[in-house]
């Protein structure tokens, strides 16, 4: 079992309130990402769950039991830290076996478990290495193995991939995913990388400035952000205002059918993702697109970011074609079904 329930959590550092009104339920066997920019309070939350920080208010439940008065060493939650923090005076196998040894597990059984984890984390052959003789990625894997071997109900991972290069990052991410789906261990995976969160988890919880902003499946957060800030965090750039009348959004960028909506006539904010806008050189003939002029471009490899001035608005477009130059006259098309209209207040 491994159900994690955070209820009305508030965490302070001295007089500074870091986390407030934090509610989150992680289901048994779930892989949940806690996503947020640097300084949002992600590590703080993990430390509170692990018991290394005492919340100022609220409660933490593991499998329905409050663990507020349970010391870290007795909680069924193990944390993998942002840095590997291996014990420098032990070799790889001793590091991995540390928790088992603390629990008084007999040597033979421990060795069997360590062997299995070494295989799972692809560390075979390194068991007798000193930790300062390991690469950064190997150290991260030892830190992961050291926690996994305890088979905790809840595994807390604090940006375990942040110090790795892109290649190794992908391999480690896949490794963690495989381990998760094989063991069905409940995991709370902290990251500041939105694509990592979308790729790795069943559900994503977005934390901005100490507050939980939205929880949901990756596609939900990506396609139905709760508010403009959430959209912005996931790469949303084009925000515009308009008002809805008779199922249509009237805006500077045009009139779009949006289906029946409440709050007829009120000003509402809408957004369209840069990659959903179509762009083409301006045709001579008749067209229904919006006319604009390229302001600047940024080549990103597999795609190019193009900023287009349309009247008073600047629209950002992401296109696979590297065919546009500043000053060029273009035409953009906004597919109405891709417009996200934020709920009014």
């Amino acid at each position: 079992m491994g159900e994690l329930d955070l209820k009305n959590l508030r965490i302070d550092y001295g007089a500074r309130m870091i986390i407030r009104d934090f509610n989150l339920a992680v289901r048994n066997g779930e892989m949940m990402s806690l996503l947020g920019p640097s300084g949002a309070g992600k590590t703080t939350i993990l430390k509170a769950i692990a018991g290394l920080l005492a919340p100022a208010a609220g409660d933490i439940l593991i499998d329905g039991q409050s663990v507020r008065d349970v010391p870290p060493e007795k909680r069924d939650a193990v944390m993998v830290f942002q840095k590997p923090l291996l014990f420098p005076f032990m070799n790889v196998a001793q590091n991995i076996g540390f928790g088992l040894r603390m629990q008084g597990q007999p040597g033979r059984e421990a060795r069997r478990h360590i062997g299995a984890i070494l295989a799972l984390t692809q560390l075979e052959g390194l068991e007798h290495r000193k930790v300062h003789e390991l690469s950064g990625g190997q150290q991260q894997r030892v830190a992961l193995a050291r926690a996994l071997v305890l088979k905790p109900s809840v595994l807390l991972l604090d940006e375990p991939l942040s110090n790795l290069d892109a290649n190794l990052r992908q391999r480690m991410r896949e490794l963690i995913q495989t381990i998760q789906s094989e063991t069905r261990m409940t995991m709370l995976f902290v990251t500041h990388d939105q694509s990592e969160a979308l790729m790795i988890s069943h559900r994503v919880a977005l934390l901005l400035e100490g507050r939980l902003r939205q929880v949901g499946a990756p596609r939900e957060l990506f396609y139905q952000p709760a508010d403009p800030e959430v959209a912005r965090f996931f790469g949303g750039r084009n925000f515009f205002q308009g008002h809805v009348r008779d199922g249509k959004l009237h805006s500077d960028l045009g009139v779009f059918p949006v289906g029946p909506q409440n709050g007829n006539g009120h000003v509402r904010t809408a957004t369209i993702r840069p990659e959903d806008i179509r762009i083409a050189p301006r045709a001579t003939g008749q067209s229904r697109g919006l006319r604009g002029r390229v302001v600047k471009t940024r080549f990103e490899g597999s795609s190019t970011r193009v900023v287009v001035a349309c009247g008073a608005n600047e629209v950002m477009v992401l296109t696979p074609e590297d065919a546009f130059r500043p000053g060029q006259e273009v035409e953009i098309t906004v597919p109405p079904e891709k417009i996200r209209l934020f709920p009014g207040d």
Binding site: P71, E73, V78, F81, L85, F87, F98, M102, R146, A147
Partner: peptide
């Protein structure tokens, strides 16, 4: 190095004496 490693030890189930 002390404080961080002690935190690691705590989450890895080591009691005060350990």
């Amino acid at each position: 190095t002390g404080r961080d490693l002690l935190d690691v030890g705590r989450t890895l189930k080591a009691d005060a004496w350990q």
